[in-house]
Design a protein around this nucleic acid. Structure first.
Length: 808
RNA sequence: GCGGAUAUGGCGGAAUAGGUAGACGCAACAGACUUAAAAUCUGUUGGGACUUUGCUCCCGUGCCGGUUCGAUUCCGGCUUUCCGCACCA
């Protein structure tokens, strides 16, 4: 017998035939819902990133099953999306055809990996059975007021020919194709994620997530405490400004409005009209390009209008400037150049007054702009107060006239979900000339995505060109109406898939409430960190919205979260086709077997770090497998020296039990690399033991322990060894070994002896030695004597089982 | 610019309620087997010193300092690389 890819095939077949992976909801053991982020079948096959995400977690879930948990571990496909569509445009192959073919290939690869998914619980987001419920959720959100349409400046990717959510724009570029994103005013569908901003922020602290991810998400939500201050404008209107520094109000020198703000036209005096209109038009054109420059000059124009500072009645000019963001706060800000860098630069450029109203806490005048908190000066009755005292005081004064209030503001914007693309779930809304926007009745769902459509994008949704799809009767009045031609962002599909798995084939409801409440939240969720402000945020929002609509009873979808690291090319660079450093894992599976590839990914780096692919690394894993096999081969040739437990047997038993202890501990912490290091040490100990006379019955027990411990890591090899030992199928029905505490107690211990903090010698201690006896022994060590000489020992510290430290 | 992380042999990486730094593996070198090579097995392997080659000594976890009998681990200040955000008022 020799492990190879044939071994893989043999056991994969047997596992499938015997239903080893079948999930039984009624089975004994605590439920453990473990999930990896499902894969995107845009490429033709699984790549190293998938393998690194899935294979080690397969090991982990197998371990948990052996520990007695009732593990639910499904897998599906995030099948809609731009890459499949772009591939279709390039090749002419319909996205549905390529996607289904890729899903088929990837499923086979996952099976070839040895992954223990129960495919009866699988799902695929481009399946009508699935997107029917995606649309159903859209309708519920609409009815709840959480889905709405608005005309707004949106991010437009000219290459993908679609709008994008804020979260999908990185450095002003499209997250998918890297094209420069431009701004466009369009009427689009939004989900009101901001309604949950507070809860999304607060509940994050209770989650067992990586701290960094929590921080990224918190910053993205970006709560800030401040005040809304109302300004009277000389055209008779009022505008509110959001500020975190109401204490600087006496230093006001002008106010600024964003170019996209609807009030701009009304503010502009005839003599300024030409300049303002030109500025607004230019701002729209160059804005996104210039945003990339951090050295960008702040520009603006005067509108001709004046605003009144509500705190002292002074008039200040109203400017238009594109350093004000229309979509944050009110799009209108108060400018205090002395205490804000941006306002300072702007004031210097346009020769606007700069008035100091804050000094530092000690009363010293710092150089301007001085942006720290401090103490007020030249601020009437508020002079002398600190920033912290002055803010509520000034707002209270303004509040009497209805011109000030404390408030909070969020950086988070509502989630724009319309996409002018073909390959997604159609938005289930109908536009009727009489009734306006009407949701598709639930009984008419799904709104099927038509197959025969010219899907090349031209800035309008491809579905618009499909009259059979577009033309519909209004469900309310029966008049001729039009469907919404857009499809939903694919992040909508993935915002609830984990809720569908436990009840994947329910055709009556989105999911059964009892079932979902029993199975969720997810106990362990594993996927890339790049989803921190996208999928992981959207999924939390969906869970909360569905909870508030009564469909489930928990607050958070993912109790624990782990990010696997990234696998790099052999050159240490990110894998990419253009660099030519990609690795196809299939080739290695074919050559060395799935277990060798699994072991490589698990042993070569810490799971959360990842690292470069290495051919010699994978060869070393193949070598490890051979060493394990030859050990078991050798065992058959040994003769029994009798059932005696000598020091050698005790030593091996010590290693066996400390291996069980360490592997269990490290696997619980998702530390595959150190677990396997312990397995190698145990292998080395077995090899050493088998060079001498052996107690066969005892050795047999040690080898059985070895196979059971190895099983989650190298499942095919372990089944083969288990069978070869004459043990009944399957090794995965074996309980996880427990530690015999007795075996870990040693009679004598090696301890270090330190003199003034430096190790100078070793001593052999007996477990029963008292502190005094240990110190006495330490003083007798030759090398220690040399360093102490005649100097008296001032102090002696004993660290049990570790060392004796002498201070002279 | 702000925020977060990171730094350990030739390489991947171990070890932190402060306690023998370098586990485990790779690569390298030497030996065994072989006509030879590969494979396999065994051994050595952080750097340096030696008029005691040793159960020897000195140095060593990015840099500088501090606390401690003792610091990879804690504190203060830098530097590097990576990541997140980036006119958020």
């Amino acid at each position: 017998m020799s492990y190879s890819k044939n071994t893989d095939a043999k056991w994969q077949k047997k596992w499938a035939e015997t239903g080893l992976y079948k999930y039984d909801e009624q089975a004994k053991g605590d439920k453990l819902y473990c999930l990896e982020m499902f894969s995107y079948p845009s490429g033709a096959s699984l790549h190293c990133g998938h393998w690194y995400n899935f294979a080690p977690m397969d090991t982990w879930t197998r371990f948990k099953k052996m520990q007695g948990y009732n593990v639910f571990h499904p897998m599906g496909f995030d099948a809609f999306g731009l890459p499949a569509e772009n591939y279709a445009i390039k090749t002419g192959i319909h996205p549905k055809d390529s996607t289904l073919k890729n899903i088929d290939t990837m499923t086979k690869q996952l099976i070839a990996m040895g992954a223990n998914y129960d495919w009866n619980y699988s799902l695929n987001t481009c399946d009508e059975e699935y997107y029917k419920w995606t649309q159903w959720i859209f309708v519920q959100l609409y009815k709840k007021g959480l889905a709405y349409q608005k005309e707004a400046p949106v991010n437009w990717c000219p290459s993908c020919q679609t709008v994008l959510a804020n979260e999908q724009v990185k450095d002003g570029h499209c997250d998918r194709c890297d094209s420069l994103v431009v701004q466009k005013n369009m009427k689009q569908w939004f989900f009101k994620i901001t309604a949950y901003a507070d809860e999304l922020l607060e509940k994050i602290d209770g989650l067992n997530w990586p701290e960094k991810t929590k921080k990224i998400q918190k910053n993205w939500i970006g709560k800030s405490h401040g005040s809304l201050i109302t300004f009277d404008i000389d055209n008779g209107t009022q505008l509110k400004a959001f500020t975190t520094r109401a204490d600087t109000l006496y230093g006001l020198s002008y106010v600024v409005i964003a170019p996209e703000h609807p009030a701009v036209a009304g503010l502009t005096k005839p003599e300024c009209k030409e300049a303002v209109e030109k500025y607004v038009a230019d701002a729209a054109k160059v804005k996104e390009i210039d945003r990339l420059s951090t050295e960008r000059e702040r520009t603006g124009v005067f509108t001709g209008s004046y605003a009144t500072n509500p705190v002292d009645g002074r008039k200040v000019p109203v400017w238009v400037a594109d350093y004000v963001i229309a979509s944050y706060g009110t799009g209108f800000v108060m400018a205090v150049p002395a205490h804000d860098e941006r306002d300072y630069d702007f004031a210097v450029r346009y020769k606007l007054p700069i008035t100091r109203v804050i000094v530092d806490k000690d009363g010293n005048e710092q150089s301007l702009p001085f942006c720290d908190h401090g103490r007020l000066t030249d601020s009437q009755e508020f002079s002398g107060m600190t920033t912290e005292e002055a803010i509520p005081a000034i707002v209270a004064k303004l509040a009497k006239e209805g011109k000030g209030e404390l408030t909070t503001m969020y950086r988070l914007r509502d989630w724009l979900i319309s996409r002018q693309r073909y390959w997604g779930a159609p938005i289930p809304m109908i536009h009727c000339p009489h009734c306006g926007v009407v949701p598709v009745p639930e009984s008419d769902l799904p709104v099927k995505l038509p197959y025969d459509v010219e899907f090349r994008p031209d800035g309008e949704s491809p579905l618009k060109r499909c009259p059979e799809f577009m033309n519909v009767k209004c469900p309310v009045c029966g008049a001729d109406a039009q469907r919404d031609p857009d499809t939903m962002d694919t992040f909508v599909d993935s915002s609830w898939y984990f809720l569908r798995y436990p009840d994947a084939h329910n055709d009556k409801e989105v999911f059964n409430k009892d079932k979902i409440d029993r199975m969720c939240p997810i106990d362990m969720y594993v996927g890339g960190q790049e989803h921190a402000t996208m999928h992981l945020l959207y999924a939390r929002f969906f869970t909360k919205a569905l909870r508030d609509m009564g469909y489930l009873d928990f607050d958070e979808p993912f109790n624990a979260l782990v990010h696997q690291g990234m696998i790099l090319g052999p050159d240490g660079q990110k894998m990419s086709k253009s660099k030519g450093n990609t690795i196809n894992p299939d080739i290695y599976v074919d050559k060395y077997g799935a277990d060798a590839v699994r072991l490589f990914f698990e042993f070569a780096f810490s799971y959360t770090d990842g690292g470069p692919w290495s051919d010699s690394g994978i060869e070393s894993m193949a070598r490890f497998i051979k060493r394990v096999e030859s050990l078991f081969e050798k065992e058959k040739t040994l003769t029994d020296a009798g059932a005696v437990m000598t020091e050698k047997e005790k030593e091996l038993d010590f290693v066996r039990n400390s291996t069980i202890k360490a592997v269990t501990h490290d696997l619980n912490l998702i530390q595959f690399n150190t677990s396997l290091a312990r397995m190698m040490e145990y292998l080395n100990a077995l090899t050493g033991y088998m060079n001498g006379p052996v107690n066969k019955a005892f050795l047999d027990e040690c080898l059985k322990t070895y196979v059971v411990l190895l099983a989650p890591f190298a499942p095919h090899l372990a089944e083969e060894l288990w069978e070869a030992m004459g043990q009944p199928y399957s090794v995965f029905n074996q309980p996880w070994p427990s530690v015999n505490a007795q075996a870990l107690v040693k009679d004598t211990i090696q301890m270090a002896v330190q003199v003034n903090g430096k190790v100078r010698g070793q001593l052999t201690a007996s477990v029963n030695d008292s502190k005094e006896q240990l110190i006495e022994k330490a003083l007798q060590v030759d090398t220690v004597k040399k360093f102490i000489g005649d100097t008296p020992v001032k102090k002696a510290i004993v660290v049990p089982n570790k060392l004796v430290s002498l201070v002279v």
